[in-house]
Amino acid sequence: MEKLLENKTLLIAGAGGLLGALLVSKVIEQGGKVIAADINQKEMRERFKSLGIDVENEYLTLENLDITDEKNVKEFFLKYSDIDGAVNSTYPRNKTYGSHFFDVSLESFNENLSLHLGGAFLFTQQCANYFKKSGNPFSLVNISSIYGVIAPKFEIYDNTTMTMPVEYAAIKSAIQHITKYTVAYINDSRFRINCVSPGGIIDQQPDCFLQAYKEKTHGVGMLDVKDVVGSVLFLLSEQSRYITGQNIIIDDGFSL
């Protein structure tokens, strides 16, 4: 039986992260070759080791990539001629990211937009440029968020030091529109970009937050990162051949 991503070469940017590393493992399981790219090779290798990913696997190539560096990104795409699709799971941010609304300076806000949204723009632009030069079908998946779709439910952060960063909401909503803008601009059925917008993903949050969040869902609460992977694999595959410019929400009803 043919696997979902047989004979495909897929670029995972941010491969050392929680979602990126799991995607690397699952793409290989589905028969695809992976170019795993991250700004920090050491952390990426350690994450792979924790997941049992063999870094010597013939289906895996490790690369350095700084998604906020225009020269680096452009040179990266010149190295390859056989990329069939990509996932941008990067999450660049500065040291003051995550401050409460009234504590966010304009300088910090602008810097975070430049890093995260600017990086998403650059990566999307260069994927489109790569397609125009190669002419080969290409599917890009951008990672947005439920908070790129709806306003934050601030009450779930009561009794915690956490908040929903204003920069995050601005960036994730804009990523959805850059996705639509770019596929409309390229206007070619062979080039597709879609978004996946997860709800909250479990990552050592306090119990009071987890319970408050769960009450806003249909019962599952915060998602495990593995709950997001299936939609990304689908969008990278031929099963979604004419799906483009769309946003798939995975949130167990949190946004309803």
Rank of each mutant, 00 (worst) to 15 (best):
F191T: 03
N247D: 14
I250E: 08
I186C: 11
Y168M: 03
K226T: 15
R93A: 10
E167C: 03
Y130H: 05
Q41V: 10
L236D: 02
D251E: 11
I193E: 06
P206C: 08
T182V: 10
F48Y: 15
V228C: 13
L22Q: 13
L18H: 11
A86V: 02
E107M: 06
F77V: 02
S255I: 02
V196G: 09
L122W: 04
D69E: 08
N247L: 01
L210C: 10
G230S: 13
K26L: 03
L23N: 05
T61V: 13
L106D: 04
M222L: 13
F76S: 07
I248L: 15
G118C: 08
G119Y: 09
F121C: 02
H116D: 04
L106F: 04
K74Y: 08
I175H: 07
L236E: 01
Q239N: 14
V55W: 04
T217C: 09
L256N: 11
L235R: 05
L256T: 14
D54K: 13
V225R: 11
H100T: 00
D66F: 12
P137D: 04
T217E: 09
I178T: 07
Q246T: 15
K180A: 05
L18R: 09
G245T: 05
G230T: 09
I249F: 08
M164Y: 06
F48H: 13
P152R: 06
S144V: 00
D203G: 00
S25V: 11
Y59K: 15
Y157H: 14
M164G: 11
L122K: 03
I146K: 12
V183D: 04
Q125A: 08
I243W: 09
N187E: 11
Q211M: 09
E155P: 09
S144F: 00
K49M: 09
I12V: 15
S89Q: 07
R241Y: 10
L19A: 03
T61Q: 13
K79L: 06
L236P: 06
G20L: 09
I171E: 05
F191C: 02
S105G: 12
E58A: 12
S240R: 15
G118T: 03
N247K: 07
E46R: 14
S134I: 02
G17P: 01
T160L: 01
V220F: 07
P206G: 06
E155N: 15
P206E: 05
Q204E: 10
H218C: 03
F121S: 10
E167T: 07
T68H: 06
E29G: 04
I150A: 11
G230K: 12
Y91Q: 07
L235N: 07
P137M: 08
L18Q: 13
A174T: 04
L113V: 00
S240M: 15
D251I: 09
L117F: 08
D103G: 05
K153W: 03
V166L: 08
E167A: 03
D224P: 00
V196Q: 05
G118P: 01
L235Y: 08
K216T: 06
Q30V: 00
E46N: 15
G200A: 14
K214M: 10
